[in-house]
């Protein structure tokens, strides 16, 4: 399909505008959502203080995934030290510590 020069120019402009919108929309939406989420940040920080942990409630099936900051490093392997983590969520949330107390 051969396009006339004017059509090519219009197509180029349309393509560049579409791309700018596609890249700009997530940036703008991100700024708006971050502002919205920041409104109750103090309350969520107070909840963290009450619970004593900032851990996210992603998994309620394994305590080492539910509370990685408070579970001891051997928690996933307490019953079988060389066992694989049976929870697929464990593939996402890496173990927090290597040796006890040492940052990875």
């Amino acid at each position: 399909m051969d396009l006339r020069p004017k059509t090519r120019r219009r197509l180029l402009v349309a393509l560049l505008i579409t791309n700018a919108l596609a890249i700009g929309a997530p940036i703008v939406h991100g700024m708006i959502r971050r502002d919205e989420r920041a409104r109750d940040l103090e309350a969520r920080r107070a909840l963290t203080s009450v619970l004593g942990t900032p851990d996210l409630a992603l998994s309620s099936s394994s305590r080492w995934l539910r509370h990685p900051s408070l579970a001891e490093p051997t928690a996933p392997f307490a019953d079988a030290p060389a066992a694989l983590d049976v929870d697929p969520g464990g593939a996402f949330v890496a173990p927090r510590w290597a040796p006890e107390g040492v940052d990875r």
Binding site: I23, P26, G30, R33, L58, P88, G89
Partner: peptide, 23 residues
Amino acid sequence: ALLGWSRLHPTFELAPAWDAGQI
């Protein structure tokens, strides 16, 4: 996949963390 075998799935209320530079 992130939630694993969990039965109580949290409501997805996350804010995008990327800024313009990272995008």
